[in-house]
């Protein structure tokens, strides 16, 4: 069953598609005895928009941190195809995580600045990124003057300013209201289609994962593991029309069912979290 789903998924995402990164038998255990991840095999193709969907404690954030290199796996390994440099990765956290003492411009500059790129040299890239996330005119604003959604836009611009091949996002829109979240979902998809980077997106929202991704990896908890993969065949560009379409509703229902099974399996049904 599981293999079958995988086969379908890889076919859907195009047989000739190159893979960017493969996780082979990745596991992570902590000193307190918790096994956050076990036997995770996952291939992320170039240009994929992969969502990691699952209940709390299924290790989706841990998986993201391992991919980012912020955490080392206890077992297994990461295989980057065609080599990997640190600058291949952009990371967007659950909170905007901006430097409160720096302007929007300087916050977006930060990743380049840490690479030794001067303000003058970085300016075109920074301006372009700020424009891409629709924040032109707010370059000199301080983070505290911005709304939650705008802060998240800055965070995304900062994640993309180095033109990474892979953008990792850890429940980036979880704290936002629904209207703002929808808007950011649309804008993120637009960016992704234009720039052709790869996204691994951690979420616990079925609706968000179906709307955004071409592949959904449903994870189960205790121990964290891949439960099943779902491929979302709906064509891009996806817009508000897709959000209200029957196809979308069907996909959401199916995904919800799979997530429900994963939760029951993980014993998380009685979990309050």
């Amino acid at each position: 069953m599981l293999q079958e789903m995988r086969a379908v998924a890889s076919e859907a995402s195009g047989g000739d598609q190159k893979s960017l990164l493969t996780l082979r038998d990745v596991g992570k255990s902590f000193s307190n005895g918790v096994t956050a991840l076990r036997n995770v095999d996952l291939t992320i193709g170039q240009g994929d928009f992969v969502s990691l969907l699952g209940p709390s404690g299924c290790g989706k954030s841990t998986a993201l941190r391992i991919i980012a290199g912020l955490s080392t796996p206890t077992t297994g390994m990461l295989d980057w195809h065609g080599g990997q440099g640190r600058s291949d990765i952009g990371f967007v956290f659950q909170e905007p995580t901006l430097l409160p003492w720096a302007s929007v411009f300087d916050n977006v500059w930060l990743p380049l600045r840490l690479r030794g790129v001067s303000r003058e040299k970085a300016t075109p890239a920074i301006r372009e990124m700020i424009d891409r996330v629709h924040l032109s005119g707010f370059e000199d604003a301080m983070p505290r003057e911005l709304s939650g959604g705008m802060k998240m836009r800055v965070s995304i611009a900062r994640g993309l300013v180095t033109k990474p091949r892979l953008l990792l996002m850890d429940e980036p829109f979880a704290a936002l209201d629904e209207i703002t979240r929808f808007k950011l979902n649309n804008d993120l998809l637009e960016l992704w289609q234009d720039e052709r980077f790869t996204v691994v997106f951690v979420t616990h929202s079925v609706f968000e994962s179906v709307f955004l991704s071409n592949r959904i990896v449903v994870m189960a908890a205790r121990p964290g593991r891949v439960f099943r993969e779902i491929s979302v065949d709906a064509p891009y560009p996806r817009d508000e029309a897709f959000r209200t379409s029957p196809d979308y509703a069907t996909l959401c229902r199916e995904t919800s069912q799979v997530l429900g099974e994963a939760i029951t399996l993980g014993g998380g049904a009685h979990d309050g979290h």
Binding site: R86, L110, L114
Partner: peptide, 26 residues
Amino acid sequence: VDRNLIDLFRLNGATRWQELWHLRLP
């Protein structure tokens, strides 16, 4: 300092000095 910001600095290959100057001191 916000743990996530420290992670962000590490991700971007910040040196100890950069982390101190651009993050910890401010």
